[in-house]
């Protein structure tokens, strides 16, 4: 069938499918960095987007504030009740913090896995196709944001930095299903239980905490936080609360369903978390090795 192969359109289609597969393969493999054309395109679009997105968000904020005014009376009542409790808690936190500091001084322990430096950022875009849950923020490598850093809101963990350009960064939310998107987590039961956050139940909007021991007693409402042992995220960032527990397919482990603490849709102001400890360690070990080399 020579005519069949000479069909220009068919050949175009085949060639473009090959190019499609090649491009998808290229962009799906683990990439340390984006290529420079991608960086250029992302930086220029993020500039335009921040021009549009800021005023739009401001106007939306004003409208929202007006709506909030309607519920002010009810909220005020509720909040007054909580304020009484706050004073007591504050005093307690203060004394505990002080005690902690003193104890750490005695132990001569200066840094912990929980230390981090936050970099404030604002969301300027969100992926509209909603398969990969990605948001773009307005801080990039120029501000010290690096790949794989944790991203939090005031309430808790929302994701990690997927890629960076000089003036923007793309954040992958914890709700996107990605086999490489695993977070080491502790379930704060009477005895802390360790597991990993793997996957997301899109229908019920719950995170899956896998690898809990089959005989562990997990209750509804217990807190889940990061362990800081994955080497990327600092310790004790809140992730969410347990909603239900089910045995896994083979009955060897349990899987807990976690309701994320932070609202994954309404994220506007975020913090990129720079873990203090690991960077110090790296620098020191680098200096040490350099010193040794010079010594030799």
């Amino acid at each position: 069938m020579p005519q069949f192969f000479l069909n220009k359109r068919l050949i175009m289609l085949l060639v473009s499918i090959i190019v499609l597969v090649a491009l998808i393969g290229f962009s799906l493999r683990e990439r340390e960095e984006l290529t420079w054309p991608e960086k250029f395109v992302k930086d220029s679009t993020s500039w335009v987007q921040s021009l549009v997105s800021r005023p739009a968000n401001y106007i939306a904020g004003v409208v929202e504030n007006l709506q909030d005014l309607q519920n002010t009376y009810q909220e005020n009542k509720e909040l007054k009740k909580r304020v009484d409790d706050m004073a007591r808690l504050e005093a307690k936190v203060y004394s505990l913090e002080k005690e902690n500091e003193e104890l750490q001084e005695i132990l001569d322990k200066q840094e912990s896995l929980a230390d981090y430096e936050p970099i404030q950022a604002v969301r300027i875009a969100r992926s509209p196709e909603r398969w990969n849950e990605l948001i773009v923020i307005n801080k990039g490598t120029a501000n010290g944001v690096e790949k794989n850093m944790a991203v939090i809101t005031a309430k808790g963990l929302i994701g990690k930095v997927k890629s960076t350009t000089p003036f923007s960064a793309t954040v992958q939310l914890v709700s996107s299903i990605d086999p490489t998107n695993r977070i080491s987590a502790i379930l704060q039961a009477e005895e802390p239980l360790y597991g990993t956050i793997e996957g997301y139940d899109k229908k019920n909007e719950l995170l899956l905490l896998k690898g809990l021991p089959y005989d562990a007693k997990v209750e509804k409402g217990q807190n889940v936080v990061t362990t800081g042992m994955g080497g990327i995220f600092p310790k004790d960032l809140p992730i969410g609360k347990v909603v239900k527990v089910v045995p896994d397919e083979f009955g060897l482990n349990q899987t807990a369903y976690i309701k994320p603490e932070a609202n994954l849709y309404d994220v506007e102001h975020v913090m990129v978390v720079k873990k203090s400890m690991i960077s110090v360690d790296l620098e020191e070990s680098l200096k040490d090795s350099e010193g040794e080399e010079e010594g030799n």
């Binding site: 473009s16 499609l20 597969v21 962009s27 990969n132």
Partner: peptide, 11 residues
């Protein structure tokens, strides 16, 4: 900009 997987929407 939005998907970081080049090729899908391009095609």
């Amino acid at each position: 900009v939005y998907t970081e997987i080049i090729g899908i929407y391009l095609f």
